[in-house]
Design a protein around this nucleic acid. Structure first.
Lengths: 141, 141
DNA sequence: CCGTATCCGGAACGATACTG
DNA sequence: CAGTATCGTTCCGGATACGG
């Protein structure tokens, strides 16, 4: 990760241009349907699989499994298997996971603060005539 | 977690449980492939359509159009049409758009800071035997 | 209890061609 | 220059059934 050449007036933001693929990578993690939910459930304490399953309803087994695996792969959660009578597996956030949680909290905070405004803007925009357009099939409904 | 009712112990984070649909909504905006890119390009100044197109390569016309429309719908960017000889349309961030930019910056900063660690964790995880699993098709390849 | 394998619908995205 | 319409593909995510 080396800077190509000095950027004189980067008052703004270099990460936007520089490691776009990199940032997109993280955004996809955060943008998928369940990662953030699971991370939040692990904010306080370590959890077991079906515990997470119940808390994250209506998540499916498949998606929880896949989500946890993705988080584990990125070093955001740890998976520990206890060899007890009925098998027991604990999931917990790693330090990196916690640091991501902080950022996600900021995002969630922004969402809460701006939810009303966004909803209002949407209804206003939708009310303002737009007959029909196949382009709605762009990003986010 | 023994309390049957009452959310007495919300020491942690209510937004995680409370407005999950709401937060997910914002996350989807942020998580789509181009919204963040476009927002970053508008960080400094107002931009025209093909200007954004070039800066955001390899975005397609269709996706840029759809992305901008989504952002406009949510009140994150404004669209101003100038009735000049060759038509000219300017896009710019709204105050709400700027506030989102701030949060996105934090996220991008986190991405930069943890990129190396994540890549390392991934290769390590992938190296650790996992023969084959269709579950990789979970969130985020 | 803790997962994995298989099937499948629909949404997101890209490529291309056309319009004002 | 600034879009829209149409088509095709890829891939996410839900339902279900099975295995350790």
């Amino acid at each position: 990760m080396a800077h190509p050449i000095a950027d004189v007036e980067d008052t703004a933001f270099e990460a936007c241009d520089e490691g776009r693929a990199l940032v997109r990578d993280v955004l996809e993690r955060v943008g998928d349907k369940w990662s953030v939910v699971v991370i939040c459930q692990l904010a306080d304490t370590t959890r077991r699989f079906n515990e997470l399953r119940r808390m994250s309803e209506p998540i499916t087994q498949r998606m929880l499994s896949a989500t946890l695996r993705g988080l584990e792969r990125d070093g955001l959660v740890t998976r520990t298997v206890h060899d007890t009578k009925p098998p027991r597996v604990d999931y917990a956030l790693t330090p990196r996971g916690f640091s991501l949680l902080e950022v996600v909290r900021a995002l969630a905070g922004w969402a809460e603060a701006n939810a009303a405004g966004i909803v209002h803007a949407r209804t206003a925009f939708d009310a303002r005539g737009l007959g029909a357009s196949d382009l709605r099939r762009g990003p986010a409904a």
